[in-house]
Design a protein around this nucleic acid. Structure first.
Length: 715
DNA sequence: CTAGGTGTA
């Protein structure tokens, strides 16, 4: 039987009824003496001010019951909707209960996003009346704000996973809280499986899984019928509206709905969910135009200002959504956003939500080994999360641009977990490093398709990270230390051999951030002309390298970025990545010595090194002028952003982009001879499908043998 | 003729 503890009904019951008399006496006493047990200082005024607000949180009353559950059970599941206060309060319950002590084990709470880890830890430090970074801190990539006194640590789930690689039993923690578990990020899912392995070996360790939604049965079953505690959320009511019939064009319908709200509904801002940058920019433009017309025709009494919001928008433009709009004339705000407004960015003051029911979602096709983004219907959980955005400050309304029947019957309960939609190359590498030998029997909450696992194992075996028996090689163990995709890590590890480690570091860092080339639609031509200054005849990778060097030469100047249409945020962040990767390379004593720039081999060495890791992603130009992927025969085109004007016969590419067409993006010209020299095991031509690629490689191979560049092998 | 948003000692 599953144990459930439901606080929905009696969340407001007075404290006296729950705690024992002695406990209450102790509490009373500590309040009277007014001393902070963490630093023996008297509590500040601010502490009491915040305390009053904390007492109003629905979760506040649950402390004693929750702590009791954690005492009794190794795993506890806690469900609390938005506004319950679980993220800030639950970790403090555990600290108060003595689960964390200075110089001993800590309480950790993971978050999927770094901003959340940072901001929540600040809030909790204030609540506990201690300096941020002392007793309470955070740890995210590039930033560790913790110290020897830290007893409560907020961190990203990815960071905890990294820690597990060197601390396989997570010995420094007494309790770990996995927050936002319903989001099912790749890292959370791996951690789930990892805890299944660790918990029996660490009977003193406690795990608290916190989630905002319904899939509680699944969580309970997975964690051996762990007890479940329910905390009510605290949102204002949101009235739901559905369309009577399905809409054919959801963008049109969304724009129309915004105008209807604007003309017919009372004051309050509007939030519209669309799927991507282009869609959003078009909609913003249309909404502004249509609203002007409505005002001119006297249909609307207020002005309307539409504002875009998506991740690739510069921070300054993003923050415009928080600006107050003029009171005269009275103006209503309409934010048109991607999924970023579903979880990452909260906009208070939103009263109306328009939800067409779609988002772009990653899908992985193991057959052609390609990840792509597809506009897909959202899940019920996601739809409810969107609706909740209307009820944060007062009662609101949500307009769903689909029928109630399709909400009930067609939407899935939960978004498909990311682990089922991803290339698992780096996941498998991480799991192997974590000591999981048998991946097939690893206890995933949702096991990935066997074909996806096979593809990952095959890829890692080709790269030399796994032996033929599937064991992690020494090279693979080194690869796993880099926070990178396997090919990128391989490129770094191979770079000393090609005497281009510095250049490889720069290129790899630039490939792990969003593109540094800024290209606003209205100034696309100027932007392209600026990019042309950095163009290298051999392709995009070296063009990236040129851009990076130009930025460094210009003293990393902000105005230089503006003048040259370079995304400053992206290039700066690539520089932090580069520093981190360089540190790891130095730790492995890898030579950072470079080929002199004056040498004729400078650029060829970099291209060879690139090929030594990306040979599985190479393409050949066919007689008709299009490219086909080597060993795969998939027809592809060079992406329009590609700088190669000469259409070389052989290229290596960074990614396969599947949109209206099949594109390969970030492409570099390579010499076919290098295939046999850099990746002989992969270019075993007997394993190739017959066709133009095989024929021309066979001719080349014979020529190379004749000229003594290649040794003849047995037939 | 140009892919969302998260994230990693």
């Amino acid at each position: 039987m599953k144990r459930r503890l439901d606080l929905n009904g009696d969340a407001k019951r007075p404290r006296e009824e729950t705690g024992s008399p002695t406990q209450d006496a102790k509490k009373q006493k500590s309040v009277q003496t007014k001393v902070n047990p963490h630093n023996q200082k008297p509590y500040s005024q601010n502490y009491y001010k915040i305390l009053e607000k904390r007492k109003l949180l629905p979760v506040f009353e649950a402390e004693a019951d929750f702590v009791q559950l954690v005492k009794e059970y190794q795993v506890v599941i806690l469900v609390g909707e938005t506004g319950s206060g679980k993220t800030t309060q639950v970790p403090q319950f555990l600290v108060n209960a003595g689960y964390a002590r200075k110089g001993s084990k800590m309480v950790a709470c993971t978050q999927p996003r770094r901003v959340a880890a940072m901001s929540v830890s600040k809030r909790v430090a204030d609540e506990m009346d201690v300096p941020w970074g002392q007793e309470v801190g955070y740890s995210v990539r590039f930033e560790d704000n913790t110290g020897p006194n830290t007893i409560l640590k907020y961190m990203t789930d990815g960071m905890l996973l990294r820690e597990a690689m060197s601390d396989p039993k997570l010995d420094r923690y007494s309790v770990i809280i996995l927050d936002e578990a319903h989001e099912r990020t790749l890292s959370t899912d791996i951690l789930f499986g990892l805890f299944k392995e660790i918990l029996p070996k660490r009977l003193d360790l406690r795990l608290v899984v916190m989630s905002a939604t319904l899939e509680t049965e699944k969580f309970q079953t997975y964690f051996d019928n762990a007890p479940l505690m329910n905390i009510p959320g605290r949102l204002f009511p949101v009235e739901m509206y559905y369309t009577p019939e399905a809409e054919r064009d959801y963008v049109e319908a969304a724009i129309r709905t915004v105008l209807q709200i604007h003309c017919c509904e009372g004051p309050g801002d509007i939030l519209v969910f669309l799927t991507g940058e282009e869609e959003i920019e078009t909609a913003v433009w249309r909404i502004d135009a249509d609203a002007k017309e409505a005002v001119a025709q006297g249909k609307a009494t207020m002005e309307l200002r539409a504002l875009p919001l998506y991740g690739s928008l510069p921070p300054q433009a993003q923050s415009r959504i928080f600006d107050d709009l003029p009171q005269t004339p009275p103006t209503r705000k309409c934010v048109v956003a991607t999924n970023i407004a579903e979880t990452s960015i909260t906009i208070d003051g939103v009263v109306y939500v328009v939800d067409p029911g779609f988002s772009k979602q990653k899908v992985y096709n193991p057959r052609i080994r390609v990840e792509s983004l597809l506009v897909s219907p959202i899940s019920k959980a996601s739809a409810n999360q969107r609706a909740g955005r209307a009820g944060r400050t007062k009662a609101g309304k949500c307009f769903r641009l689909y029928t109630e029947v399709s909400f009930n019957r067609e939407l899935t309960e939960q978004t498909y977990p990311e682990i089922l939609r991803s290339n698992l190359g780096s996941v498998v590498l991480q799991l192997k490093k974590l000591g999981i030998e048998d991946l097939v029997h690893f206890d995933f909450m949702d096991p990935p398709a066997p074909e996806t696992l096979m593809r990952a194992l095959e890829q890692l075996n080709y790269l030399g990270a796994l032996s033929d028996t599937g064991d992690l090689t020494e090279y693979g163990a080194m690869m796993s230390e880099f926070p990178l995709d396997p090919q990128l890590a391989a490129m770094l590890l191979n770079s000393p051999k090609y005497k281009c480690a510095c250049e490889a570091l720069s290129i790899v860092a630039l490939l792990s951030v969003p593109t540094v080339f800024f290209r606003p639609r209205e100034r696309a031509r100027v932007a392209d002309e600026c990019k042309a200054q950095f163009t290298h005849a051999n392709g995009d990778h070296l063009t990236l390298l040129n851009t990076y060097h130009a930025w460094k030469t210009a003293g990393e100047s902000q105005s230089w970025c503006q003048d040259n249409f370079v995304n400053q945020r992206a290039i700066k962040s690539s520089d932090s990545v580069r520093t981190q990767l360089e540190r790891i390379m130095k730790r492995f004593n890898l030579s950072l010595e470079s080929t002199p720039f004056s040498s004729r081999e400078y650029y060829p060495n970099i291209r060879k090194c690139l090929l030594s890791a990306f040979y599985m992603q190479s393409a050949h130009r066919e007689a008709q002028g299009h490219y086909t992927i080597v060993k795969d025969a998939q027809v592809v085109k060079l992406h329009p952003s590609c700088v190669l004007s000469t259409k070389p016969d052989w290229v290596v590419y960074n990614e396969f982009v599947l949109t209206k067409e099949n594109y390969i993006r970030t492409v570099t010209d390579v010499e076919p001879e290098w295939f046999f020299l850099c990746a002989p095991h992969y270019f075993d031509l007997d394993a190739f499908p017959s066709g133009e690629v095989k024929n021309s490689l066979q001719r080349l191979r014979r020529k190379m043998i004749k000229e003594g560049q290649l040794k003849e092998e047995e037939e």
